[in-house]
Design a protein around this nucleic acid. Structure first.
Length: 415
RNA sequence: GGAGAGAUACCCAAGUGGCUGAAGGGGGCGGUUUGCUAAACCGUUAGUAGGGUUAAACCUAGCGAGGGUUCGAAUCCCUCUCUCUCCGCCA
């Protein structure tokens, strides 16, 4: 959420930000309208309440006083109703305003306008036609797609044997790296979250159609552990010395993938349920850009350790997520597709999520309470890492060489 | 799923309609005394959100959350959330 005061006083900045995102500007107009209406109504109400407070005697009121007070109470009641309505309108409008892109983010419309920052690792030259990961996985009996369709449906997977073991090894390997080398505290949260949490990180109210909801409850399947990790600090004030807070978690993530019919239907690139290691940092506002680059490095370290070629791109304004102020995507090389595909998305949200979720810190020097900054990224999407390993380390006979870093976890050198 | 008891400030806790934004204690902070520490004593401890202002002043809200009754609610009524105890069921 943006600071209502800031929006009110810097409409040009916000208007410009929405334009850069190609986001409809009527959201701003409705916010401003609702906001000014709310302010006027609230002031009137506050005046009336002040009058009542001044007039109310300490004991029983006289008949005359009672007459006046009764009338006043009636007026206040009516005003209160309009204030409540106005307040709902403002809150709702505010929740639909996206974050302001950082000044350094380049304007653009689609992912083709994203900026490549760097490439790491050389894509391997194959002397044979490299197979797609789903083909490899099926041939080696690592994933049983037919069984998954039977059990659940399309866009689900059933890992089998050393396939299941590889997925589990990757999870352990990544968690160990982040907790032992990068200073994150491991969290094991529920995968079901409530509405307030999804509003806190910005998935709701705007993106309900991307989410699985559990019928007749206030519960949803979490689309990313960002929701659980960030909201674990919702409505709290931490001491400045406790920052930065670094949390990591492995969870299953659930997405409807509405509107992506036909995209990535084969394999495990785009699933309704997938494993992901999430990295979340809550930091002092002065350190959030440093934190973002560090976090990006933490995610990259996984690919470096596994020996997978990747590149880093910076998202343009049009590709930027609703809550993010600046985002770097890490894309890993897929030989069968001859291109880089997203495997992590690392963002600085500035105080956008902290405001929605009321996550604050107390300044040591002044004792003042401030919103902190939140940063998060995948470290990494496990299924996509699985797929990338299969493709990049495949041999001509269809076997897969296990990256040395994973051998201690897998106890196998070949799949 | 059933029955009961709770939720008040950093913590414990009093408060059953106006004199309460809140007694009392603990803890924290500051001070007096002291060679230092401790003890004792004195003082202080409402933060926060919103409006307002150049900044203040000032105003409003706030006793788990949301409604209701009332001129007036921490206090009465309703709904919900969470915590605890017992029973049932259960990995």
């Amino acid at each position: 959420m943006l600071d209502p005061k800031f929006v009110r006083e810097n409409t040009d900045v916000v208007r410009e930000a929405l334009a850069r995102r190609h986001y409809p500007h009527h959201f701003l107009e409705s916010f401003l309208k609702a906001d000014s209406h709310w302010r006027v109504t609230t002031q009137e109400l506050d005046h009336l309440k002040n009058e009542r407070n001044r007039m109310t005697p300490n004991g029983k009121p006289t008949e005359d006083q009672l007459l006046v007070l009764k009338q006043l109470a009636e007026t206040i009641k009516q005003r209160q109703d309009s204030v409540n309505q106005a307040e709902d309108a403002v809150k709702n409008a505010a929740l639909f305003l996206p974050n302001i892109p950082d000044a350094s983010v380049v304007s653009g419309e689609t992912e083709s306008d994203n900026i490549e920052i760097k490439r790491v690792g050389e894509p391997r030259l194959f002397e044979f036609q490299p197979l797609a990961h789903d083909e490899l996985a099926t041939r080696r009996g690592l994933i049983d797609f037919e069984a998954a369709v039977k059990v659940t449906g399309a866009r689900f997977a059933l890992y089998r044997g050393s396939g299941a073991r590889l997925e589990r090894s990757l999870i352990n390997f990544m968690l160990d790296l982040h907790t032992q080398r990068h200073g994150y505290t491991e969290i094991l949260p529920s995968v079901i979250v409530n509405t307030a949490s999804l509003i806190g990180t910005g998935q709701l109210p705007k993106f309900e159609s991307d989410l699985f909801r559990i019928t007749d409850t206030d519960f949803w399947l979490s689309p990313t552990a960002e929701v659980q990790l960030t909201n674990s600090a919702r409505d709290t004030i931490v001491h400045e010395e406790q920052l930065p807070v670094r949390l990591t978690a492995h969870t299953s993530c659930f997405r409807k993938e509405a509107g992506s019919y036909g995209k990535d239907m084969a394999g495990i690139i785009r699933q309704h349920q997938f494993n992901k290691i999430e990295l979340v940092q809550m930091v002092n506002p002065t350190e959030s850009m440093t934190g973002l680059h560090e976090l990006l490095g933490h995610a990259e370290a996984v690919l470096v350790a596994l020996g997978l070629p990747y590149r880093v791109v910076q998202l343009c304004t049009g590709d930027l997520g609703f809550s993010a102020g600046i985002t770097y995507d890490i894309e890993v090389w897929f030989p069968s597709q001859g291109k880089y595909r997203e495997i992590s998305s690392c963002s600085n949200f500035f105080d956008f999520q902290a405001r929605r979720a009321m996550i604050r810190y107390r300044e040591k020097l002044t004792g003042k309470v401030n919103y902190l900054h939140t940063i998060n990224g995948s470290g990494l999407a496990v299924g996509r890492t699985f797929a990338a390993i299969l493709e990049n380390f495949q041999n001509e006979d269809g076997s897969i060489t296990v990256p040395p870093a994973l051998v201690p976890y897998l106890n196998l050198e070949q799949l």
